[in-house]
Design a protein around this nucleic acid. Structure first.
Lengths: 236, 236
DNA sequence: GCGCACAATATTGTATACAATCTGCTGCTT
DNA sequence: AAGCAGCAGATTGTATACAATATTGTGCGC
C-alpha cells in the first residue's frame, strides 16, 4: 500500500551528498511558495542555516539555476526566479503541446498500481488542503502532472514536463489572481477516471482543458508587486 | 553580412567567468566528436590543461552534467555521457514531436535576415566538410536545428530542442553506422527553400522526414564498442 | 597458481582562506 | 542642494588544503 506522498517523494535521502539535500530543501520551499520569486538566497546565510560550507551551498544553487528555479547573477548572488509574462505564456504553450499527448500515452500504459498511486496522490492533495497547508497542496498538484508523465514512460519528455511544472509553480506564485480558487481537485479526479477507463482520447482532452483552465486563471500582466530583488525590472 | 558561423557562435567570450569558457570548450569538443562517449574527464587533468583550479573545472562539469553531456558519478568522476538505445529512441521521438511544429512556426515568422543567417550556416557546413573537418560540420548541422528553433521565437521550446540536439550528437557518436553517409546538406537546403517561400506546412513535413532519415540511419543496437567507462554496461 | 584481505595510491568531496567585484555611504566640489 | 569621487563594508569568485572514498597493487594463506 503506497504511502501518502510526502516530502520523501521529492527528497531522496543523502545518497548524492549534502548538496542534493540542500537542493531538495530549497526546491521544496520554492514549490510550496514559502520562498517567493525575487527572494535573495545569500550563500553565507544558507551555509549557516543548514550547517554546511559555502561550497555545498554553491553546488546546490548552481543546480537549482540549471532547473531554472533560481536565477544566478554573476557577482550579485542567487535569487528565486521571476518568470516574465512572456515566459509564462511560453511555459503553458509548451505544456499544452506536451502534456495532453503524454496523458494519452499514460492512459494506454496505465497499470492498476499506477492508478492506486494517482488516487493516493489526489487524496494527499485533499488532506493538505484540509489541514491548512495550501503550499503543500500546490506542490502536490504539480507533482501529479509529473507522476502522469512518468507513467507515460518517456523519461525524456517527463524531464521536460518536470521543468515546466517547476517553472509553473513560480508563475503561479507571481501571477495567480486571488479571487479564482485553485480547484484542481475536480480536474485531477476526472483525469484519473479517464485513466481508469484507459480512455486515452478523453484523458488528452481533459488535460488540454485543464491546462487552459490554469492559464486563464492567471493574471498575466507585468510586475505583480515584486518583492526582494528590485532594480531589475527598471533597468533596460 | 553575417560571419561564417565559427566557434564564436558557441562561445560567448568571458562574461560569465572561466568556468563558462571551459564548459564551452568541452561542449565544443564533445559536439565535434573529439571527446567520445565514455571518456573520463578527470578534474586534475582538466585543471592542468586549461590552467585553472579544480573549482572552476568542477563548476563546468556540473553544468555539463545538467545539460546531459557528461555523466557525473559520485566519488567516481565525470564521463562523457553514453545514451542508451532506449534513450536514443526517446530523444528522436521527442524531436519528432517538437521540431516539425517548431519549423512551421519558424516559417511563419521568417525574416530576410534570418534567411541569410540560415544560408550562411549551410555554407559553413559545406565548407567544413570540404576542408576535411567532419566534426565541425556535424556540430554545425546540429546547430542549424537550434537556429531554426530560435527563429520560431519560443525560447522555452528552443531550450528543449537545444538539449535534444546535444544529446543527439552523443547518440550519433555511438550509433552512427559508417556506411550511410551523413548527407544533411540536401535536407537542410530543402528546408531553407520552404522557409524562403514561407511555406509552413512544407517545412513541417520536411523536418519530420529529415528527422526520420537521421533515425533510420542509426544502428540502434546495444553497445557499439564502448571505449573508456566499462563495467557500467556489464553490471546489471 | 588462485583468491582474498589489506595497504598504498589516486581521485573526488568538503571546508577554509584569500582575491575580485559590487553596493552604499561619506564628504567634497560646484 | 545636487552630483560625483572615492573609500568602507559586504558578498561573491577562485584557489588551495585537508578529509573521505574508490581503485589499484601487494602479499599472505590455501
Amino acid at each position: 500500500m503506497p504511502l501518502t506522498h510526502d516530502r520523501l517523494d521529492f527528497i531522496q535521502p543523502t545518497l548524492n551528498g549534502p548538496s542534493a539535500d540542500l537542493e531538495s530543501a530549497l526546491s521544496l520551499a520554492i514549490h510550496e511558495h514559502r520562498l517567493l520569486p525575487g527572494t535573495k538566497l545569500g550563500e553565507d546565510e544558507l551555509s549557516e542555516i543548514y550547517g554546511v560550507s559555502r561550497t555545498v551551498v554553491r553546488t546546490a544553487l548552481q543546480s537549482l539555476s540549471h532547473s531554472q528555479l533560481v536565477d544566478l547573477k554573476r557577482n550579485r548572488g542567487a535569487f528565486v526566479s521571476q518568470p516574465s509574462v512572456r515566459e509564462a505564456r511560453e511555459v503553458f504553450e509548451a505544456r499544452a503541446l506536451l502534456e495532453p499527448r503524454t496523458a494519452n500515452s499514460a492512459a494506454e500504459r496505465m497499470t492498476d498500481a499506477a492508478l492506486v498511486r494517482l488516487e493516493a496522490h489526489i487524496a494527499a492533495e485533499h488532506d493538505a488542503l484540509e489541514s491548512g497547508e495550501p503550499g503543500k497542496a500546490l506542490r502536490l498538484s504539480g507533482h501529479f502532472h509529473i507522476e502522469i508523465s512518468r507513467i507515460a514512460d518517456q523519461a525524456t519528455i517527463a524531464g521536460f514536463i518536470e521543468r515546466l511544472v517547476a517553472r509553473s509553480s513560480l508563475i503561479i506564485a507571481i501571477y495567480w489572481r486571488r479571487q479564482s480558487a485553485l480547484c484542481e481537485k475536480h480536474a485531477h479526479h476526472a483525469l484519473v477516471d479517464a485513466f481508469r477507463r484507459r480512455d486515452g482520447a478523453e484523458a488528452e482532452a481533459l488535460m488540454k482543458s485543464h491546462l487552459l483552465d490554469i492559464l486563464t486563471a492567471l493574471d498575466l500582466r507585468e510586475v505583480k508587486a515584486t518583492n526582494g530583488s528590485l532594480r531589475d525590472i527598471l533597468k533596460p
